[in-house]
């Protein structure tokens, strides 16, 4: 049940896109971790640039998207820049479509 809730939250987070890259935060590898316990969801995520005005909107967007999932009682989103995001975290198919340089 818990892992199913995590999967549904992960799907819901696909509604949140990085405005610059135009892809959702799950495929971009921004979402580092999702845990759920008795309907309380904790999401740990990142963004490309600390201090960027988009970062706050990404956090609020993730919280709003997670809160729409049935079974979620509370959604807590933590932003972290440790480790720093890297294009190698992007899903390979999306990475190719975004025209990224080959990454290690």
């Amino acid at each position: 049940m818990t892992s199913e809730l995590v999967d549904r939250v992960r799907d819901a987070l696909r509604a949140v896109i990085d405005p610059e890259l135009g892809e959702n935060i799950v495929d971009l590898g921004f979402v580092y971790d999702i845990t759920a316990e008795a309907g309380a969801v904790r999401i740990t995520m990142t963004a490309t640039t600390p201090g960027c005005p988009a970062t706050g909107f990404l956090r609020e967007g993730a919280q709003a998207a997670a809160s729409t999932v049935s079974g979620v009682v509370s959604a807590d989103v933590t932003m972290t820049f440790e480790p720093a995001w890297d294009p190698s975290y992007i899903e390979p198919a999306v990475r190719a479509s975004l025209g990224f340089a080959a990454v290690n």
């Binding site: 509604a15 896109i17 405005p19 005005p53 609020e60 967007g61 919280q63 709003a64 998207a65």
Partner: peptide
């Protein structure tokens, strides 16, 4: 983009900056 679509992110589909 941030001003218009930032506040509705996660609640509705949004365009890209481009």
């Amino acid at each position: 983009w941030l001003e218009t679509y930032g506040p509705v992110m996660g609640r509705a589909p949004t365009p890209r900056v481009q």
